[in-house]
């Protein structure tokens, strides 16, 4: 039997009927057409599918949609809030060369967001810790680590101007 659930995704409200076994990843990608969130392994090992649920980072591939009924979901598509202007994390990823094939990028950016909200000035070690659940086959991670450190600086400057991360 299908279940009725409500999700708030990137500020938009949705009411959906879903099978109890459907994952959040499937609902985002297939039902809501939010394909920015990727699927790299489907079993919680690679981090490509990371989104934030009520502010916490989760692997959407092993999260059932019914389990997040009523929650607030943030995905990569919501990062650039106004649509046009990029989020500092995105800017840093672009500038620092943290993006190659881009398949891990959305997940990396969402974990970066989670990390930097929690810890606005992470050390390199803390950034690497924060990425330990993510795999990337292209970049060797170093430019991603650099990008997140750079984003931390940008977000501090923004906070000074009253922008919420």
């Amino acid at each position: 039997m299908k279940h009725q659930i409500r999700l708030n995704v990137n500020g938009d409200d949705y009411e959906l009927l879903v099978d109890p076994w459907r994952t959040l990843n499937e609902v985002l990608r297939e039902d809501l057409n939010l394909t920015g969130t990727k699927l790299g392994c489907g079993v919680g090992d690679c981090g490509a599918c990371t989104v934030l649920v009520d502010g916490k980072s989760v692997s959407s591939c092993i999260t059932l949609a019914v389990a997040v009924d009523g929650k607030k979901i943030e995905t990569v598509e919501g990062l650039a809030a106004s649509g046009e202007k990029l989020h500092p994390i995105q800017e840093s990823f672009i500038e620092k060369g943290a993006i190659q094939c881009g398949f891990c990028t959305a997940g990396m950016e969402m974990s970066a967001l989670y990390l930097l909200r929690k810890n606005p000035s992470p050390t390199e070690e803390e950034i690497r810790e924060g990425l330990s659940g993510h795999l990337c086959r292209c970049t060797g991670y170093n430019q991603i680590v650099e990008a997140i450190a750079d984003a931390a600086d940008r977000m501090k400057t923004d906070r000074g101007k009253g922008v919420k991360p």
Binding site: R29, N33, L34, T35, G36, T37, K38, L39, T75, V76, E77, L79, A80, L86, Q90, F93, I94, E95, G97, I99, G102, F103, T105, A106, E109
Partner: peptide, 23 residues
């Protein structure tokens, strides 16, 4: 020169379409 990649922004936004994103 370190020209940023021309696809980086689309990828950073989650807007770059890979095959499985197509319907």
């Amino acid at each position: 020169k370190n020209v940023p990649r021309n696809d980086a922004e689309a990828k950073a936004r989650g807007a770059a379409l890979y095959t499985d994103d197509l319907k």
